[in-house]
Simulated assay, not measured.
Amino acid sequence: MDTLLLTMIATFVAEIGDRTQLLVALLVVRTARPGPIFAGFAAATVVNCTLSVLVGSFFASVISGHALMMFQALALAFAAIAMLWPRLALDRLDGWRMAPFWLALLGCLVLEFGDKSQFLVIAGAARADLPWIAGLGGAIGIAAATLPAVAFARRIEGWAPLKWLRFAGGIGFAAAAVVIGVGAL
């Protein structure tokens, strides 16, 4: 249960103001079809979290306990840096001509591959007795953070507190990285 909650909360915080969240909001506004957009996003999230669980399971089989703790600290540090770093411009996918489901699926897969949430799920799966629980927690956290982007798509981009929420999340991830990193040493 700890793995589920920790991964869910970590990925939820990591996705606040993330490019994936903003892409989903943009696609909902552009297509006026939130159902297929959210379904495509959800499918991309399941694929991403499944891949993360497989990688995390592999790491668990080849790395010892303290090294896994250090890997988790590095994943948290990466999340902190990504949240504190200025957000890159979002590709609006204007040239992509396809059905809304496929547009969201492929766009989100591209954005999520190598993203901070993926590393958080990998680290959670590597340290868990049941790695799929980390994947489930990650998928729930990512979806929970993105649902408001679907519901409030027209207003999310200009929402000023996103900057401060990202800053607070980055500081929280940095503090957790230091605590876990010191514990691994």
Rank of each mutant, 00 (worst) to 15 (best):
D94T: 15
D94W: 07
D94H: 12
G95W: 08
G95P: 07
W96E: 12
W96K: 15
W96I: 15
R97Q: 11
M98K: 10
M98T: 15
P100A: 13
P100Y: 09
P100V: 10
F101D: 03
F101N: 06
F101V: 11
W102A: 14
W102I: 09
W102K: 15
L103M: 13
L103T: 12
A104F: 03
A104T: 04
A104N: 04
A104G: 07
L105T: 08
L106E: 05
L106P: 02
G107N: 02
C108T: 13
C108K: 03
L109Y: 01
L109P: 00
L109G: 07
L109A: 10
V110R: 07
V110F: 09
L111R: 00
L111H: 01
E112H: 09
E112C: 09
F113N: 15
K116L: 15
K116W: 07
S117W: 03
S117F: 05
S117M: 14
Q118F: 03
Q118W: 01
F119Q: 07
F119E: 07
L120D: 03
L120A: 14
L120I: 13
L120N: 06
L120S: 08
V121N: 03
I122P: 00
I122F: 01
A123Q: 05
G124Q: 09
G124W: 01
A125V: 10
A126E: 05
A126S: 13
A126D: 04
A126Q: 06
A126P: 04
R127F: 03
R127N: 12
R127L: 14
R127K: 11
R127S: 10
D129C: 09
D129N: 14
L130K: 13
L130W: 07
L130T: 14
P131W: 03
P131A: 13
P131C: 13
W132V: 14
I133W: 05
I133N: 04
A134S: 12
G135Q: 07
G135R: 08
L136G: 08
L136C: 08
L136D: 01
L136F: 08
G137V: 09
G138V: 03
G138I: 01
G138E: 00
A139S: 12
I140S: 04
I140N: 03
I140Y: 00
G141S: 09
G141E: 01
G141P: 02
G141L: 05
I142S: 08
A143P: 00
A143N: 05
A143L: 15
A144P: 01
A144Q: 05
A144N: 05
A145Y: 00
A145I: 11
A145W: 02
T146N: 14
L147T: 12
L147P: 00
P148N: 10
P148T: 14
A149Y: 03
A149P: 01
A149G: 12
A151P: 01
F152N: 06
F152K: 13
A153G: 10
A153M: 08
A153R: 09
A153S: 15
A153Q: 05
A153I: 08
